[in-house]
């Protein structure tokens, strides 16, 4: 790892101030992606500003069907929140299958979505739940937040402080994990609203990262059942192809995971 300077932020405001004073700074929360990346010398921030101890970024609030999750909330805390499980068990289950128990004790929801790894699980949930990404400056619809591989709408020193959404009537997430890395080779989050609106978001498979699939959404609005997806075609030309799975295989996985998710919802 290259040299770096560590700073612990006491508040969101303090973190922004420290970032603006830094050369090539990076925010770190759980660090479950960033620290290993720095160890491999694939990232070399001059300064690390630690968000993990900022109280206002912690915790889960559920009132009625409306959910707010502080960005520094760990995967473990999302997975084991009884209040969240009561309104949106799909998100608890998703969080409980990220990485391994030790990673879940450190990794945070805000870190995952700000990093926008094309194989990360949370971005699919944010899109399918129609979540709002709250930052220190503004609120960004999930549809506008994820802009490409490891790219988001976040600017310079902007910090994701929370995410909010209204719990759907039904939802589920299913992923086909790479047998070695356990990252999603295809992961599909489906969510259905009381008014019949359906969102389907796919992670792990898209060449440009997480995306919604309009044809699957339309098919499920017309008929909320796994069979409704049988005749939907998944365009392989927009999917990732690598040593783990070629695009055609991923296209098939996307449909199978979507069907399983609808069946599980």
């Amino acid at each position: 790892m290259y040299e770096t300077q560590y700073h612990r932020a006491s508040s969101v405001q303090d973190a922004v101030k420290q970032m603006e004073a830094a050369g090539e700074g990076k925010y770190v929360a759980g660090g479950m992606t960033l620290i290993p990346t720095m160890k491999q010398r694939l990232a070399a921030p001059s300064d690390l500003i630690d968000l993990r101890h900022i109280g206002e970024m912690q915790g889960i609030t559920v009132s009625g069907r409306s959910v707010r999750i502080g960005a520094a909330t760990t995967h473990h805390d999302v997975a084991s929140s009884a209040a969240l499980k009561a309104v949106c068990p799909a998100l608890c289950s998703l969080a409980g299958h990220i990485g391994d128990p030790h990673v879940r004790h450190m990794g945070t929801i805000g870190g995952s979505i700000a990093n926008n790894d094309p194989a990360a699980d949370y971005p699919a949930a944010m899109l399918a739940l129609g979540a709002t990404i709250v930052t220190n400056r503004r609120e960004i619809a999930a549809d506008d937040f994820f802009t490409g591989l490891f790219e988001t709408a976040l600017e310079g020193s902007e910090i994701v402080t929370a995410i909010t959404f209204d719990a759907p009537a039904q939802a589920a997430y299913q992923k086909f994990a790479n047998p070695a890395s356990r990252y999603a080779m295809a992961g599909v989050f489906v969510a259905r609203r009381d008014d019949g609106d359906v969102r389907v978001a796919v992670t792990g498979a898209g060449a440009n990262g997480v995306f919604r699939h309009g044809d699957m959404e339309a098919a499920l609005v017309a008929n909320w059942s796994p069979d409704a997806l049988s005749n939907v075609s998944i365009d392989a030309s927009e999917l990732l192809s690598d040593i783990h799975a070629d695009a055609a295989y991923r296209a098939n996985l996307v449909k199978v995971m979507a069907k399983r998710a609808v069946a599980a919802a």
């Binding site: 560590y6 620290i35 030790h102």
Partner: peptide, 19 residues
């Protein structure tokens, strides 16, 4: 490298001492 930090299991190779 698993240890317990504040009562929870973590991978100490993926955390800075300063953290």
């Amino acid at each position: 490298c698993v240890i317990h930090m504040d009562g929870k299991s973590v991978k100490s190779c993926s955390i800075l001492a300063a953290q």
